[in-house]
């Protein structure tokens, strides 16, 4: 390897710079265009600079459910994040030991990551449709057999009441926090699991043994020894959990039921909305993503800074 910069370096730097421009250029374009003046169109030139389209967006742009979709996506994203972090930690612990079926579980996770999302989404939709058909079927059978029959007893009345309740009230189990949550988890959990693998592959068990020798319970060992050490990686898992859920569209497409998420609404708007308000929505969505990414990075930096400042807390006891 030669000293100094070679010609290859400059050529590759140019390629890299062009790639970064290709990567960020379009997003920056709509960010700029979302501040288009009230009379401006979907493309350049800018007709003045204004917050007109953001106001327009805030007032619901005449399209129903945009704000609802935003709130739906936020709520779902937060739940997905929490569930992903908890399940990933538990599974990460499990995979440190040998257990039957660990290979099968691992390959299932990988399969869940790479198999076409449309297939997964359709599968979940079909599964819930079958559940719905089954429950409705039960309701109908119960009503048929136990409502308005001769010699009713308390028991048959009760069964009949369940039947009519199902007929009157039951619509679907499908929803944001049932099928929708599940669909998102099939996408976020493989990433969480892979991160936990990377974490525990480099984790020195001597720390846990020391804690155990000093009389810590398994929970105390986790809470005061393991958790602080793996915290930055958990922030990473949370980052993946939220951003992947926030942006998820392919698996959500058939599986969220009647409630729409933001990406689904956005996709719908591309065919109906022809004003820069869609860019304003894009800017807001990207801003949320960046706020989360930035929070994650700052959180990791704070954890690392604290670690450097405190060094060791030996002799200070359990706080």
């Amino acid at each position: 390897m030669t000293e100094g910069r070679t010609k290859t370096f400059y050529v590759l730097t140019l390629i890299f710079a062009l790639y970064v421009l290709f990567l960020y250029g379009p997003t920056i374009t709509i960010l700029v265009l979302s501040f288009q003046g009230p009379s401006g169109g979907m493309t350049f030139p800018m007709n003045g600079v204004s917050l007109h389209w953001f106001h327009n967006l805030w007032n619901g742009i005449g399209v129903p459910n945009v704000v609802d979709a935003l709130i739906n996506s936020l709520k779902l994203g937060i739940v997905v994040t929490i569930v992903t972090v908890v399940i990933s930690i538990m599974a990460g612990y499990a995979f440190r030991k040998r257990f039957r079926g660990s290979n099968l579980l691992f390959f299932t996770a990988i399969a869940s990551l790479i198999l076409p999302s449309i297939v997964v989404s359709l599968g979940i939709a079909l599964e819930f449709q079958l559940v719905n058909q089954t429950i409705t079927g039960w309701g109908d059978t119960l009503v048929e057999n136990y409502v308005d029959i001769e010699n009713p007893t308390a028991w048959t009345n009760f069964l009949g009441w369940i039947g009519t309740s199902i007929q009157d009230n039951y619509q679907t189990l499908m929803g944001l926090f049932t099928s929708g949550l599940g669909a998102h988890l099939t996408w976020t959990l493989p990433f969480g699991l892979l991160i936990m693998f990377a974490v525990f592959n480099r984790f020195n068990p001597a720390y846990e043994e020391a804690a155990r020798d000093l009389g810590a319970s398994p929970w105390q060992t986790f809470r005061y020894v393991v958790l602080p050490m793996i915290l930055p990686s958990l922030v990473g898992v949370a980052l993946f959990g939220f951003t992947l859920s926030w942006d998820e569209i392919a698996r959500s497409s058939q599986a969220v039921g009647s409630a729409n998420t933001l990406p689904l609404t956005l996709r719908g708007l591309t065919t109906t909305v022809t004003t820069p308000v869609i860019y304003a929505l894009g800017t807001v969505t990207t801003a949320v993503s960046f706020a989360v990414i930035l929070t994650a990075f700052i959180a990791v930096l704070i954890v690392q800074a604290r670690r450097r400042r405190h060094g060791s807390d030996a002799g200070k006891g359990v706080v």
């Binding site: 538990m90 499990a94 660990s102 599968g123 959990l189």
Partner: peptide, 28 residues
């Protein structure tokens, strides 16, 4: 038994939202 209950939530999610849906798709 520790690794089993630790892996259970992950296995359950994949069973309900990945394996079963694929099976249902095949059957349907």
């Amino acid at each position: 038994w520790t690794p089993y209950w630790q892996a259970a939530p992950l296995a359950l999610v994949f069973l309900i939202f990945f394996i079963l849906p694929l099976l249902v798709t095949f059957i349907v």
